[in-house]
């Protein structure tokens, strides 16, 4: 490519980066109002599934994410935890991601403080175990044997939050909040094998891969990306980080659409002039 073209390309890229930055910063600074939107059907299904559980039910929440995807998945995790506590359900949190424990502890402690719930009694964070699918398989046999202590080094035997729960079969719902394909692992070795319903919250990148499982009923509901988290906040009648991000995302998406249309029009125009092949 000639040097002039390369320079032009670099300049164009920098302009696009600046435009995207402006599209994200300006709506926050001028405090644009949050656009009205309706929760998507898939998010409704997650909400309804949690809502339908009787008080005291155990909900296993697999938090398979780290700070890389905190922006998308933390609002989901917080929303589901708030919903569980509001419905007097007992979340059992676990992760197979070695980077995740500190972030999950932070989320748990924030929501526990907000809702006045106690670790070990109203919820438990089992922590991290290496082995990925092996962890799910052994949890299917015994949770207490897989996690002899929780993340805060408390022994899980006789823990009130795990009373009546021997294995994964005894939980009423598996919720996977994941940045990668660990949802497949939980479907294969958890919900399908043990016949426990499963809902998932995933990054937008992963969402298209998960829709086939929604059609088959292997996944009962999906929260997809920041929009999914905003849907959940809407259903909980809250307006937290995800809902507040919707106006910014709308502007940024508008900009991307405009750029795609503009670039294509320019391409067609140049082709008509014989400047493009």
């Amino acid at each position: 490519m000639p040097a002039n073209d390369t320079q032009g390309l670099i300049r164009t890229r920098r302009i696009i980066y600046l435009l995207v930055a402006a599209a994200i910063i300006v709506p926050y600074v001028i405090q644009m109002p949050i656009p009205s939107f309706h929760a998507q059907e898939e998010a409704h299904k997650v909400y309804d599934r949690v809502e339908s559980l009787p008080a005291g039910s155990r909900v296993l929440i697999a938090m398979e994410f780290d700070p890389n995807c905190e922006a998308e998945l933390r609002p989901m995790a917080e929303g589901i935890l708030r919903h569980c506590f509001a419905r007097k359900l007992v979340p059992i949190l676990v992760t197979t991601n070695y980077i995740a424990p500190a972030l999950i502890s932070d989320i748990c402690q924030k929501i526990a403080k907000e809702t006045g719930t106690v670790s070990g009694k109203d919820w438990v964070f089992l922590g991290y175990r290496p082995g990925m699918a092996n962890v799910v398989i052994t949890m299917g046999e015994s949770i207490q044997r897989t996690f002899e202590t929780d993340n805060f080094s408390q022994t899980t035997r006789d823990m009130p939050a795990l009373a009546g729960v021997n294995s994964l079969k005894d939980v009423s719902l598996i919720t996977v909040i994941s940045l990668g394909d660990t949802v497949n692992m939980w479907i294969q070795y958890g919900s399908d094998r043990l016949k426990v319903p499963l809902v998932a919250g995933v990054t937008a990148v992963m969402a298209p891969d998960l829709y086939p499982y929604l059609n088959t009923g292997q996944v009962k509901g999906i929260l997809a990306g920041l929009r999914g988290a905003a849907d959940y906040e809407l259903l909980l009648h809250r307006s937290d980080d995800a809902a507040k991000g919707m106006q910014v995302q709308s502007v940024a998406h508008g900009l991307l659409i405009a750029l795609i249309i503009g670039a294509n029009v320019r391409f067609l125009f140049r082709r008509a002039q014989g400047k493009e092949a």
Partner: peptide, 19 residues
């Protein structure tokens, strides 16, 4: 559809850092 979701995800990450 995959590209659209990917663009949405990347913008969400930038939103997180900007926040």
């Amino acid at each position: 559809a995959s590209f659209g979701y990917t663009a949405m995800a990347r913008i969400s990450l930038v939103i997180g850092r900007m926040r």
